[in-house]
């Protein structure tokens, strides 16, 4: 496997231009909401609202202004699949449509997906959704096709301010840490990295520099693997089964006797 590749997104230099969103659309030939005749959301400048099957990139606009307007902030952030090292979607997919590539990225094979939508429910970040055109679950492929041809992903290529940076994870992590230190020195103590280390799902291959709590950006404070519930869930279920079994035994206890033979009395449904 080649070195793990991914994104480091420095939200402090994002200008919300949505070039990434459009570049992704253009490269991946994704349709637009209502053929473009979308309606205004009224939520700042965000009219595509969230990541889904036809929006593999999504730019978030978070307005933080007190009534006095004192130190108001407009947080901008370009969201995308995190290409988790421990990927919930990949874990649950019953058809094996979701695979891990040689770049340590997570890709859905559209020819295999049958649209059971388990991955949608599994992704801790709400990244995946159906693409109505293909009828399959879709999300960022980290431009697998471009990577295979030695090209940089369309979105990071289009990003004018290098808010989205593409590269090897190890190199990106170093760069990101430098930036955090710089920001701390210049007084922006709120800056921190989200998902850069193994603690979060073994590491997000698309991690972020944020300046506020994850929730503020619509990111889960502690994303977990679905499988956390597998063993306890199964144990309790078996327990349930046993109890039902016991209830059965108990209810039929006084009828225990030699097994009936023959067809039994001719009572017919």
């Amino acid at each position: 496997m080649a070195e793990p590749m991914g994104f480091y997104t420095d939200t402090t230099v994002c200008i919300g231009c949505k070039a990434c969103e459009v570049a992704c659309k253009e490269w991946n030939q994704l349709p637009a909401t209502a053929g473009g005749a979308n309606t205004m959301s009224g939520d700042s400048y965000d009219n595509t609202r969230r990541l889904d099957g036809i929006h593999w990139r999504h730019v978030k606009f978070i307005e933080q202004f007190p009534e006095s307007r004192q130190d108001g902030r407009w947080l901008l952030m370009s969201d995308v699949c995190k290409h988790c090292v421990q990927a919930a979607c990949l874990e649950v997919c019953p058809t094996g449509a979701i695979i891990r590539t040689e770049f340590d990225t997570v890709v859905i094979q559209s020819n295999t997906c049958n649209g059971c939508r388990d991955c949608i429910a599994a992704c801790p970040f709400g990244v995946i959704d159906m693409n109505p055109v293909s009828g399959t679950a879709q999300k960022c492929t980290l431009c697998y096709d471009r990577l295979q041809n030695g090209l940089e992903p369309a979105c990071s290529k289009a990003c004018p301010t290098d808010s989205i940076q593409f590269g090897t994870i190890s190199e990106l992590r170093a760069r990101a840490q430098k930036r955090v230190d710089q920001l701390h020195q210049t007084g922006e103590n709120r800056a921190y990295l989200y998902g850069a280390d193994e603690k979060m799902l073994g590491g997000l291959n698309s991690f972020y520099l944020l300046v506020d709590r994850p929730e503020v950006y619509g990111l889960p404070p502690e994303p977990k693997m679905p499988s956390r519930n597998l063993v306890p869930g199964s144990v309790y279920t078996v327990l349930g089964a046993i109890m039902v079994g016991l209830a059965g035994l108990f209810s039929f206890r006084d009828r225990t006797s030699s097994l009936g033979t023959g067809p039994g009395p001719e009572v017919r449904p």
């Binding site: 473009g36 979308n38 205004m40």
Partner: peptide, 26 residues
């Protein structure tokens, strides 16, 4: 102006990938 559109809109209001970003006058 808005990043999502270009001037009179002739270069952007015909392109769904752009119009979905800023669909309506406000």
């Amino acid at each position: 102006r808005l990043t999502e559109h270009y001037l009179s809109g002739a270069m952007s209001r015909w392109l769904p990938a752009l119009t979905e970003l800023m669909p309506e006058l406000f």
